[in-house]
Simulated scan of single mutants.
Amino acid sequence: MVVNAFVPAADYTGAPTWLPSGFGFFDNLSIAWNESGLGLGLANSLLYATVSAGLAVFSAALAGFAVVVMPTRRPTVWFWLIYLGTLLPLQIFLAPLFKAYVGAKVYDTSLGMILIYSAICVPFAFFIVRNFLTTLPPEITEAAQLDGAGWARLFFRIHFPLIKSSLFAAFIFQFTWVWNDLLFGITLTTSPDRRPVMAALAEISAGFSSLGPPVVLAAAIVASLPTVVLFLACQRFFVSSLRAVG
């Protein structure tokens, strides 16, 4: 992938090689950038992934706190009710979601994309945060309540800092999922200034024969960089939270 992305599009022959025949990476990227609006796709995906993952993780933290820490009736039922969202195939949402979005006039809007991504990301983020909360000793809650702490203070001042690593792990998972999504990107958007990066990359791939494989591969490398950078930057929190959940 990397070798062929550096081959100038005009020089690509399709013959197997371990070394590029030139340095055409930036020329290939420029073609992809101009032909498909890759820059807009990157900006849109950054917005969708950051805001949606953040909202989903915060909602999951509130739900996990309610199910594990607060005296909620039938917490197991609530857990499965929320977690059920990860077990349903996403394709079953498309038809009713499309009709609802058109009726609510949020089809092909940034708000519509953020709403669906936030909702889809909550169940798995809840699973991570809820499991991490179960590892915290209940004495922490009891001691804080003896000191007069209410539920809001318990959440924001005590539990929220303690579950920070699980929140980072959930955010990485959900950011990556939103960034890599193609299904909702091509179903709920049509405008180049609203579609995410994977939809833009799909358009480049549709012009595979005319643009050339090096152009497509150069765009794919750039599209994959943000998730790699995020994982490397938050790796310490990611590993520590998964150990605790496991």
Rank of each mutant, 00 (worst) to 15 (best):
V3R: 10
V3D: 05
A5S: 15
F6N: 07
V7E: 12
A10D: 10
Y12S: 00
Y12P: 11
G14I: 15
G22M: 03
L29C: 08
A32Y: 01
W33H: 07
N34V: 11
N34Y: 09
L38H: 00
G39L: 09
L40T: 14
L42R: 12
L42C: 13
N44F: 02
L46F: 12
F58M: 03
A60K: 01
G64M: 12
A66T: 11
M70Y: 01
T72Q: 12
P75F: 02
V77A: 02
T86E: 01
P89Y: 00
P89E: 01
Q91D: 04
F93C: 03
A95F: 00
L97T: 08
K99S: 10
Y101A: 11
Y107L: 09
S110R: 10
G112E: 05
G112C: 07
M113Q: 02
I116K: 09
I120R: 04
V122E: 03
V122D: 04
R130S: 08
N131D: 12
L133G: 01
T134I: 15
L136R: 07
P138E: 11
Q145R: 15
Q145H: 13
L146V: 15
L146C: 13
G148W: 02
A149S: 14
W151D: 14
A152L: 08
F155R: 08
R157T: 14
I158M: 12
F160M: 13
F160G: 03
L162E: 04
I172D: 07
Q174Y: 00
F175I: 10
T176K: 13
T176I: 14
W177Y: 11
V178T: 14
L182S: 04
L188T: 09
T189V: 11
T190W: 10
D193L: 05
R194H: 11
A199K: 09
A200I: 15
A200K: 14
A206E: 08
G207E: 00
S210E: 15
G212Q: 03
G212V: 06
G212H: 07
L217P: 12
A218N: 05
A219L: 03
A219P: 00
A223M: 00
A223F: 01
V228S: 15
V229A: 10
V229W: 04
V229T: 08
V229L: 12
F231I: 05
A233V: 15
S240V: 00
L242M: 15
